[in-house]
Design a protein around this nucleic acid. Structure first.
Lengths: 172, 172
DNA sequence: CCCCGGGATGATATGGTGTAACGCCGCAGC
DNA sequence: GCTGCGGCGTTACACCATATCATCCCGGGG
């Protein structure tokens, strides 16, 4: 990788935004300039990002931006499956690859799970059908009709776990 | 059930509180009067209840109560496995039956899942080992070391689903 | 007896998160 | 042109959570 660790390169980012815009159009929605700006900020962040952090960054381009500005954009992007909300963090992440999930046979409202490293804050999205099926089965067994499922696992990512082994004294 | 729909009867409530107090003592902790009052309010609520709603009720008994009062009590109760936090709602529920879960072989930090009815707000806790196992497996397969897992399913409870069928016009 | 340490609580202040409500503007369709 | 609608600006507010310092109580040691 030639870029930094702060996110994808500018070119890849714009390409992803163009793909997202095309996907929105295909669903009869429009990725306006504002929504595109917010999505770009979310995708550029290596970690989940809070709404007010987005707001601060957004004000560079739009001095008049206020909370509803960013929340409305985020609502739209969530409906389009372009970003997800991480409930445990009150924060938002770009969807790893909605198109890829379409290839797996899922719609834009695809099931997903988050792995949140409590040490470094990295958050990974996975898409495990066994988990989704187990949750849906358990819900239905209780007479419940599931609509949307949140699965968030807090723990240690491989890198942080390795560091913990190398210097256990720093953690205990 | 002979009681109302607003929660368990007073006698059953006090019995549960006594059991909780005994459990705390066994773990070397103390269910003080304040904590007992907060736990009673949580258990008496048929739905997840926000911290500030608890605070309002608590002020009937403790006029000087402030946010930290109730949050500290809630932190303690969560550590003891007597209440859970529902992330999607920023609210708290009493644990269905920590003792029952102990019988199932789980500690007081037992895995659990929530079924949240988006129509009536009812929230049920289930404890499905297949779900917990599937999530843990998926996380480990990604090189992740899980510590705590949140599973929350939003949908329709059986009662609300039946009502929706009976009067679909009211929903569309 | 006094002091001291720790846990629990009281009290104040502040920061972070999310939404309601109203109005304006631009555009498509009649 | 009027109207309806979606997107956005703007103000104000409600709700959620924590930091910080002070106080009280109680049991142990000197």
């Amino acid at each position: 990788m030639a870029g930094t660790t702060t996110g994808p390169g500018e070119a890849a980012l714009e390409a992803a935004l163009d793909r997202a815009a095309a996907g929105c159009l295909a669903r009869g929605a429009q990725l306006t300039e504002l929504r595109r700006q917010v999505l770009k900020l979310v995708l550029a962040s290596p970690h989940p990002v809070g709404a007010y952090a987005l707001l601060d960054q957004l004000r560079a381009a739009r001095p008049g931006a206020a909370p509803p500005t960013v929340y409305r954009a985020l609502d739209f992007l969530q409906e389009q499956g372009l970003v997800h909300r991480v409930e445990r963090l009150n924060a938002f992440v770009g969807c790893a690859g909605p198109e890829a999930h379409h290839h797996c046979g899922h719609g834009h409202d695809h099931p997903h799970q988050f792995l949140i490293c409590g040490s470094c804050g990295a958050t990974a999205e996975i898409c495990d059908d066994r988990v989704a099926a187990a949750v849906a089965d358990a819900a239905r067994a209780a007479g419940f009709f599931p609509v949307r499922t949140t699965v968030e696992v807090e723990g240690r990512c491989a890198a942080c776990a390795a560091m913990t082994q190398a210097a256990p004294a720093a953690v205990r």
